[in-house]
Design a protein around this nucleic acid. Structure first.
Lengths: 190, 190
DNA sequence: TGAATAAACTAACAAGTGTTAGTTTGAAAT
DNA sequence: ATTTCAAACTAACACTTGTTAGTTTATTCA
């Protein structure tokens, strides 16, 4: 299925790692080239611009989240069940794209032509998320607290997983998912 | 008490706002000067370097969090009570330093001489936080879940408040604190 | 009035920026 | 053996970067 990694893919993968460490603006094409073991000009045999690298990293990931949310929306799960699926989606995509998640969270403002599109994807995602919470309140599954604050709390935790996952060497993702479900939904007090 | 804002303070305040919008590396001294209505070279009558601006923003805030935590540690509250105080601390400092919080979260890696000191403050803060959770587990106040995951979940939410607070125009901070206490500690399910 | 001071200015610098043009290399395919 | 082609190279460009030096301006205080 998935083709072997092209040189372009490799450049984008290495770039994402550097972007996570220093941020998009602080990474120069010469930094990236050095990391690849080549000269800066050689990068342009494979990519069109520095901007294109960022676009590809962010848009690919944002669309993956959108696709995941669309699938969850059409599932026949309860509200709490859907929330659990959202947690699973974030754990999966974050653990598979540790470096890309940093750009998604911190460097989206450096998008240019693609920025409006990215923001629409993000807004739609949040609207879908909020809607699930509102249904849960109506059906009595979850507490009658402001959906906005609940969403903010859960979503910022999930969006920050990329910071935290790589620090835990002995990390079982299934176990992490269970813990997050417990903590984010059931709470921590006895 | 608090002196009237000096020109230096004003520069740092405006810089923090620009750093939040574009990140430290993407803000040039000419950007900052233009925002102040002066020329870039004139900034150097008041500050020593771009680096110094970042240092001041981040270290001041990090030390404020440390001071707050030290006070909470010595309070005679229960574990849950201390957690509530931590939430209050974050709501207070975040709402008072919306722009600075962005640098604290996203631009600390651009510290140079001060980076080690910053990281120590952050590590100590997290150790103190974790210790409170561990005591709560021992005393039976909170569930026996991994303290690391609980701390991560609560702390990333609190650290992201700066993103979210300015978006809500009709925001009562007391009300926000109550909501966060409910959601982060008691959970969202009925 | 004259001195002092804060805060702006112009001009310039050395280094670094993303990117382009044209060329060379080395291996695979004919 | 010759052609093809991906992928590297050198050299250079126009522009931007943080910062310094030296100077001017306007206000405050003796």
């Amino acid at each position: 299925m998935s083709k072997t990694e092209t040189r372009k893919d490799e450049i984008i993968r290495v770039a994402a790692r550097l972007f996570k460490e220093k941020g998009y603006s602080a990474v120069t094409m010469r930094d990236l080239a050095a990391e690849m073991g080549i000269k800066a000009a050689s990068l342009y045999n494979h990519i069109n611009s520095k901007q294109d690298i960022l676009d590809e990293i962010i848009i690919n990931l944002a669309e993956a989240f959108t696709a995941g949310m669309k699938e969850i929306q059409t599932s026949d799960q309860s509200c709490i069940g859907k929330l659990k699926e959202i947690i699973e989606l974030h754990v999966k995509l974050s653990s598979q794209n540790i470096y890309g998640m940093a750009s998604l969270n911190n460097d989206w403002m450096h998008l240019t032509e693609k920025r409006a599109y990215y923001k629409k994807l993000r807004t739609d995602y949040e609207d879908d998320f909020r809607h699930i919470l509102e249904e849960g309140i109506t059906s009595g599954e979850i507490i009658n607290e402001k959906p906005e604050v609940m969403m903010f709390s859960i979503l910022t935790t999930l969006r920050s997983l990329y910071i935290w996952i790589p620090k835990k060497e002995d990390l079982d993702l299934k176990e992490l998912t269970t813990s997050l479900h417990q903590i984010l939904i059931t709470g921590i007090n006895k």
